[in-house]
Nucleic acid binder design. Structure first.
Length: 271
DNA sequence: ACTGGCTCCTGAGGGC
DNA sequence: TGCCCTCAGGAGCCAG
């Protein structure tokens, strides 16, 4: 599953191949995704230059000339790869953006990903409009953020993956950040003191930065844009370790459900 | 305004 | 060996 560090890794890898190049065409073979690929999208982007490749939360934004943009999400199982335009397709290949000598192709078996387009400031799009601050920004997690966290009653784990308090934190990093901050995932936001909220902000940024530094090759389905599975493996402290010993205190890591999502924590280290 | 539950989808993995 | 069931996950949507 591509999470924020994986999406950022993909963005950085694609950027030099795409920016400054012209889209020759957009080929769509299987438009059925979370949102169907708009039928008129191919016509509206053909011939335009890619001026920038940006990321917001787990969304990739292809900025095109004249204020047009493409919004890409990889969902659960989406993979982007650089291929020869029109080269052999496999099951679950959905579309490719063709430049003169290569193409970016989406492969997505579970079809939670999507490709949409628009014009003007992409941040005004409903999918992006309510997103919270970027956790990798240097000013993330200050007193204002702590206050926003403390204004909510939901379990802190739910708040972290909600997207409005912090953008792009998924299920895995939420558990890991809470372990680092020593906070029980079920604790209501409003019952976290300001000092601990600030620690949590730092923990979120730190865990994401470390994953990014490893090239983001942390998860089962993840592939680099050339198809390599990646050689690294992040050393998770709690995620997926139910029944195993906490590396800090030896207590057994537990798995619970919060908001229909698996959540892992150490009942001794996290209060 | 918040919160929590449900939903989309396919493949992997466990149990029998 | 093979079938069936459960689970995994992002994030929109909706009901309470």
């Amino acid at each position: 599953m591509p999470e924020l560090p994986e999406v950022e890794t993909i963005r950085r890898a694609l950027e030099p191949h795409l920016v400054g190049h012209r889209i020759c065409s957009l080929a769509v073979w299987q438009p059925r995704l979370r949102y169907p690929v708009p039928p008129d999208l191919a016509g509206s982007v053909s011939g335009l230059h890619i001026t920038a490749l940006a990321r917001r939360a787990k969304y990739l934004i292809f900025h095109l000339e004249g204020g047009t943009w493409l919004l890409v999400h990889l969902g659960m199982s989406g993979r982007l790869s650089l291929v020869e335009p029109g080269s052999g397709r496999t099951l679950h290949d959905h579309w490719e953006i063709r430049l003169s000598h290569q193409a970016v192709r989406l492969h997505d078996p579970r079809r939670f990903g999507f490709l949409l387009g628009g014009h003007g400031p992409p941040g005004l799009h409903p999918l992006l409009a309510d997103l919270g601050p970027e956790p990798l920004e240097p000013d993330f997690g200050g007193p204002e953020w702590a206050q926003a966290l403390r204004a909510r009653a939901a379990p802190v784990k739910s708040l972290l993956i909600d997207g409005r308090l912090v953008a792009g934190v998924g299920n895995i990093y939420a558990s890991e950040a809470l372990f680092r901050a020593g906070i029980n995932p079920r604790r209501p936001g409003r019952r976290i003191g300001t000092a601990r909220a600030l620690i949590l902000g730092t923990a979120i940024r730190t865990v994401l930065e470390e994953a990014l530094a490893e090239g983001g090759s942390t998860l089962r389905d993840y592939r680099h844009i050339n198809g390599d599975p990646g050689g690294f493996r992040v050393h998770w402290q709690v995620y997926g370790r139910a029944g195993e010993a906490c590396r800090a205190c030896g207590e057994t890591i537990r798995r619970i459900r919060i908001g229909q999502r698996s959540t892992f924590f150490c009942p001794c280290c996290q209060r």
